[in-house]
Structure formats: structure tokens, C-alpha cells
Measured scan of single mutants.
Amino acid sequence: RSRTAFTAQQLEALEKTFQKTHYPDVVMRERLAMCTNLPEARVQVWFKNRRAKFRK
């Protein structure tokens, strides 16, 4: 699988949600996936990586 390049709009939506909660539930992730045209699995991995970045 190749690396996913996120658009500015996708990142904005993801970051906005991350500010609200670092652990979105499956419903919220699926809604984000639909809004951003990304698979739910990519949204889940983005949050996992973003939490790791946040802890540093």
C-alpha cells in the first residue's frame, strides 16, 4: 500500500475532530471517512499517528 497524501480540506476536518476528541468512536470515524472520502481504516490510523505525535 502506498502512502496516503491528505488534502488540506481532509487535514482540516481531521485536526478539527482531534481538537474535540483524541479517541473518536466508530460512528464519528465513519462520518469523517464519508466527509473526507477516505476509508475508515485510514482515518483510524491517522488518529493513532496523531496521538503519537501529540505525546512527543
Rank of each mutant, 00 (worst) to 15 (best):
R1M: 15
R1C: 13
S2F: 12
S2K: 04
S2P: 04
S2M: 06
R3A: 14
T4W: 09
A5W: 12
A5F: 12
F6C: 06
F6H: 05
T7S: 12
T7I: 02
A8L: 09
A8T: 14
Q9D: 13
Q9W: 04
Q9S: 10
Q10V: 03
L11R: 08
A13S: 10
L14N: 03
L14W: 04
L14C: 02
L14T: 03
E15H: 04
E15C: 04
K16S: 11
K16C: 11
K16Q: 12
T17I: 10
T17M: 14
T17C: 11
F18P: 05
F18L: 04
Q19A: 12
K20V: 11
K20I: 14
T21D: 03
T21W: 03
H22G: 02
H22Q: 10
Y23I: 00
Y23D: 06
Y23Q: 00
Y23R: 11
Y23E: 04
Y23A: 03
P24E: 00
P24Q: 00
P24V: 03
P24G: 01
P24T: 01
P24N: 00
P24C: 03
D25W: 03
D25L: 03
V26F: 03
V26Y: 09
V26M: 13
V27Y: 12
R29W: 02
E30A: 10
R31A: 10
L32K: 07
L32Y: 02
A33Q: 05
A33V: 03
A33K: 05
A33M: 06
M34P: 03
M34R: 12
C35E: 15
C35K: 12
C35L: 14
T36M: 06
N37Y: 01
N37G: 15
L38W: 03
L38G: 01
P39H: 00
P39F: 04
E40S: 04
E40P: 11
E40M: 11
A41H: 11
R42D: 14
R42I: 13
V43G: 05
Q44N: 08
V45A: 12
W46S: 07
F47I: 02
K48L: 10
N49T: 12
N49L: 11
N49G: 04
N49F: 07
R50H: 02
R50W: 05
R50P: 02
R50K: 10
R51Q: 07
R51W: 01
R51G: 00
A52K: 08
A52C: 04
K53A: 13
K53G: 11
F54G: 09
F54M: 12
